[in-house]
Amino acid sequence: MEPVDTTPEPEPESFFARIGGESTITRIVARFYAGVATDDLLRPMYPEADLGPAEERFRLFLMQYWGGPTTYSERRGHPRLRMRHAPYPVSPAARDRWLLHFRAALDEVALPPEDDQQFWEYVTHAAQFMVNVPE
């Protein structure tokens, strides 16, 4: 009788780990907010004088979403994205500008094509979901 192998299966690598973890997400979010900081349409949607707190929240959210630490939920609870964005007029033009800055951020980190596509599909869907006013 052959011995039974009781070695546990290795955990599948998370998307978060595969793309480089916190350092990659931090670079993406920093580049994204560098674009937002000078954007005449998007910048007014951020009431804080310093974009740092918004940048940290978005970084923590993306880290958690892609399989990293759950710090976002521990600090803020459920993301409730539409509810949190409801006070801000997110038009199709704002969505497109948001995506413009996010595309620049993804291009800068140069993920492998399949990972870039997965990330881009998520953010384009999320950006569309946030639209709450007509053009």
Rank of each mutant, 00 (worst) to 15 (best):
Glu2Asp: 04
Glu2Val: 13
Val4Pro: 02
Val4Glu: 15
Thr6Asn: 12
Thr6Cys: 15
Pro8Ser: 00
Glu9Tyr: 15
Glu9Gly: 12
Pro10Trp: 02
Pro10Val: 08
Pro10Gly: 05
Ser14Lys: 10
Phe15Gln: 10
Phe15Tyr: 15
Phe15Leu: 13
Ile19Trp: 09
Gly20Tyr: 05
Gly21Ala: 14
Gly21Val: 10
Ile25Ala: 02
Ile25Gln: 01
Thr26His: 11
Arg27His: 09
Arg31Gly: 03
Phe32Tyr: 06
Ala34Pro: 01
Ala37Phe: 04
Ala37Gly: 12
Asp40Phe: 00
Leu41Ser: 09
Arg43Glu: 07
Arg43Met: 10
Arg43Gly: 12
Pro47Trp: 02
Glu48Thr: 06
Ala49Ser: 11
Asp50Leu: 01
Asp50His: 00
Gly52Ser: 05
Pro53His: 12
Glu55Leu: 11
Glu55Gln: 13
Arg57Ile: 11
Arg57Ala: 11
Phe58Lys: 10
Phe61Cys: 04
Phe61His: 08
Leu62Tyr: 03
Met63Phe: 14
Met63Tyr: 08
Gly67Met: 03
Gly67Asn: 06
Ser73Trp: 09
Arg76Val: 04
Arg76Ala: 08
Arg82Asn: 09
Met83Arg: 11
Arg84Pro: 07
Tyr88Pro: 07
Pro89Ala: 13
Pro89Thr: 10
Val90Met: 08
Ser91Trp: 03
Ala93Met: 03
Ala94Cys: 00
Ala94Leu: 06
Ala94Lys: 02
Arg95Lys: 15
Arg95Thr: 06
Asp96Ala: 07
Trp98His: 10
Trp98Pro: 02
Leu99Thr: 12
Leu100Lys: 14
Phe102Ala: 00
Arg103Ser: 10
Ala104Met: 14
Ala105Thr: 07
Asp107Val: 03
Leu111Lys: 01
Pro113Cys: 01
Glu114Ala: 08
Glu114Ile: 05
Asp116Gln: 06
Trp120His: 05
Trp120Arg: 12
Glu121Thr: 15
Glu121His: 15
Val123Ile: 15
Val123Leu: 07
Thr124Lys: 14
Ala126Gln: 12
Gln128Thr: 14
Val131His: 08
Val133Trp: 09
Glu135Gln: 06
